[in-house]
Design a protein around this nucleic acid. Structure first.
Length: 595
RNA sequence: GGUCCGGUAGCUCAGUUGGAUAGAGCAACAGCCUUCUAAGCUGUGGGUCAUUGGUUCGAAUCCAAUCCGGAUCACCA
């Protein structure tokens, strides 16, 4: 039980005994005490004034006396300032916490809940390589899943590969016309980039055709529809759906190139999945649900035969679920897939990590699923994140203003290498170790940069800031960790030296601050989970690392004032190191033993 | 136009179930390495929390209006 939980339950009991007041949950507000006042936690008394019909000062005095007298081993003193009851938690409470947890490698992770969560993320199109936006998605989805795991949930990480459709056909047509049989193997180009190049080529060649047609007097809209290249792509999609062997063959080949490329990138950034769905398998799902919905009057049919749902009562619009030609639209397969996911995994919560441009789509999806009474429809949750923008504005594929994921990772790696060499601290590292360190710093830096911001908000990606290795960055935290490990290596024998509960210790402010911050870690994990927000953890670890750095500058561990102090500080270092490592793991960021 | 989201220091962001004098990093300036890693530490300056009104003991936080920015409202995915 965390300290704040204990205070809450003690305070509730006290209010009951003192005033017969049942203060449940929100009735009682406990904050961390502001640094400028004496105390660890503060009970805000204003909300008690009315029910108790007493002044805040009197309540503070009475409650404070009662708490101190009733729990002398828990509270050491209190003070009341205006309507705030500041409580000083006994030092023993903090040191006991340290003695009990300093060697707990699993610190912060919760017991199994028996509940299961599915997180769908990444979900790329297979016609072009990953870019910066995908990275935010990948980091966020992976991290949220890990956060759920740390909170005791079973997790299923999934991905839907958008492996069919007109976009793939465009790459395929361009390859057929212009590649002369080239392949990633023959050119040495990474598969996803190779296929992406033909997608871009298609766009360029199409534009030429359209321009020419426009010059010959065709209007632009019509030209875009009727250009030979576009016709060819559309025909290819029809052939694909008809199962034409040579089209399927090429489709499989080109997708396999893309997957090989993706796998490389996924491996590098630590993305993994328990189950991958392929759109080519799921795009027909949901068709029977349309019939079902019609029967149940959830959907209605228009005169032209198209099928719709009326969501105007919910403040939305009418939405089509089947075209007049009988083919399904995008949302139809999503409904089918939602149903399939539930049948296969029976998750208590199904999270979709998808950009906020699809907020409307997911509102509609969830509503339709609920109306069709698909099991667990109410547990569909769209984890909506903001777009990543560049200083020059939004990324646009057509304008080539896209930041490529692989390029960016290389840049981060190189920057890490450059800065590490400047530091000159890596004597004795093998080449493999050096390379690993550059990846740890480079990839970690990028992850932290993208995860430290509230996912809901769109964010600005400034390349210069992203490669900064100072201040509020992964490097700062990794550096603190390397320092900790350096101390702990040298004093390994002393770390586990036993300290008894009755050892007298007077904690210095920075020692105490470190303990109290570490002690909050379980609360933070919980909060990050409830908010589905890794930035909560990023903020927290930065704060912990920063406090450690101050402590490090102020106090010596190896040359502590006494053997007892030394042992206490070693234990504190051990707990801090474990907490940093565990928290960074939830963000998917590695920490180095040395740097 | 309808709906939704956002506006906090020069820049990037915390802080929003209403609580004390609104915090970090970057950038600027001034200090700190004979002692466990200076990728660090300490300090200084920097604010009409978009604007206006309201709710109350108390508002960056809640409500309303206005201004500004973004997303979305396809028989696209």
């Amino acid at each position: 039980m965390t300290v704040i939980d204990q205070i809450e339950s003690i305070a509730q009991q006290a209010l009951k005994n003192l005033y017969s007041l049942d203060a449940v949950g929100k009735n009682i507000l406990i904050n961390e005490t502001k640094p400028e006042f004496e105390g660890d936690y503060t009970i805000v008394l204003f909300s008690l004034v009315k029910p108790l019909k007493r002044s805040p000062e009197i309540i503070g005095k009475e409650l404070g006396d009662f708490l101190i007298n009733g729990h002398p081993q828990f509270f050491s003193s209190y003070n009341v300032i205006k309507g705030f009851l500041n409580l000083v938690v006994a030092e023993k409470v903090w040191t006991n916490f340290l003695f009990q947890n300093f060697n707990n490698e699993n610190f912060g992770n919760k017991e199994k809940t028996g509940r299961k969560v599915m997180v769908e993320y990444s979900s790329p199109n297979t016609n072009k390589p990953l870019h910066l936006g995908h990275l935010r998605n990948n980091f966020l989805g992976w991290s949220v899943a890990e956060i759920y795991k740390a909170n005791g949930f079973d997790i299923v990480k999934t991905c839907i590969a958008n492996d069919r459709g007109i976009h793939i056909c465009k790459s395929m047509i361009a390859w057929q016309l212009f590649a002369k049989g080239a392949s990633p193997q023959s050119t040495g180009i990474k598969g996803d980039h190779f296929v992406g190049d033909y997608y871009v080529l298609f766009g360029n060649e199409l534009k030429k055709q359209v321009d020419e047609m426009v010059a010959n007097g065709v209007n632009k809209e019509q030209a875009e529809k009727e250009a030979p290249l576009m016709k060819a792509a559309q025909q290819m999609l029809i052939d694909w759906e008809a199962g034409k062997p040579d089209v399927l063959e090429l489709w499989k080949t080109m997708n396999s190139w893309v997957y090989a490329g993706f796998d490389e990138t996924y491996k590098r950034i630590g993305t993994d999945f328990d189950k991958i769905y392929y759109e080519s398998n799921t795009y027909l799902l949901g068709k029977d649900l349309v019939e079902y919905g019609l029967k149940k009057n959830v959907f209605f049919q228009k005169d032209d035969g198209s099928v719709w749902i009326d969501l105007t009562k919910e403040g939305l619009d009418e939405k089509i679920v089947r075209r007049k030609d009988g083919t399904a639209v995008y949302i139809t397969q999503d409904i089918g897939l939602a149903q399939q996911k539930y049948e296969q995994y029976k998750c208590d919560l199904s999270i979709y990590v998808v950009g906020d441009e699809q907020n409307y789509h997911f509102k509609v999806l969830k509503l339709i699923c609920e109306k069709l009474q698909i099991p667990s429809a109410e547990n569909i949750f769209h984890l909506s994140y903001g777009m990543v923008e560049l200083p020059s504005g939004r990324m646009k594929t057509r304008e080539g203003s896209v930041v490529d994921a692989d390029d960016l990772l290389d840049e981060m790696h190189n920057e890490a290498e450059k800065k590490t060499k400047e530091q000159g601290k890596t004597e004795g590292f093998s080449n493999d170790e050096l390379n690993e360190l550059y990846e740890t710093i480079g990839v970690g830096g990028l992850k932290f940069f993208l995860l430290r911001v509230d996912p809901k908000k769109r964010m600005l990606f400034n390349p210069e800031e992203s490669i900064d290795l100072h201040g509020y960055t992964a490097t700062f935290i990794q550096y603190a960790y390397a320092r900790l490990k350096s101390i702990l290596r040298k004093e390994a024998a002393n770390v586990t030296r036993s300290m008894t509960d009755d050892t007298e210790n007077t904690l210095f402010p920075l020692e105490k601050m470190l303990i109290t911050i570490a002690e909050k870690y379980p609360v933070i994990i919980n909060q990050a989970c409830e908010e589905m927000n890794p930035s909560v953890i990023a903020n927290y670890i930065y704060n912990l690392a920063k406090t450690f750095n101050s402590f490090y500058a102020e106090h010596s561990v190896a040359n502590a004032e006494s053997q007892e102090k030394k042992t206490l500080r070693l234990q504190l270092c051990n707990l801090t190191a474990i907490t940093i490592r565990n928290a960074m793991t939830l963000l998917g960021i590695k920490v180095p033993e040395r740097m």
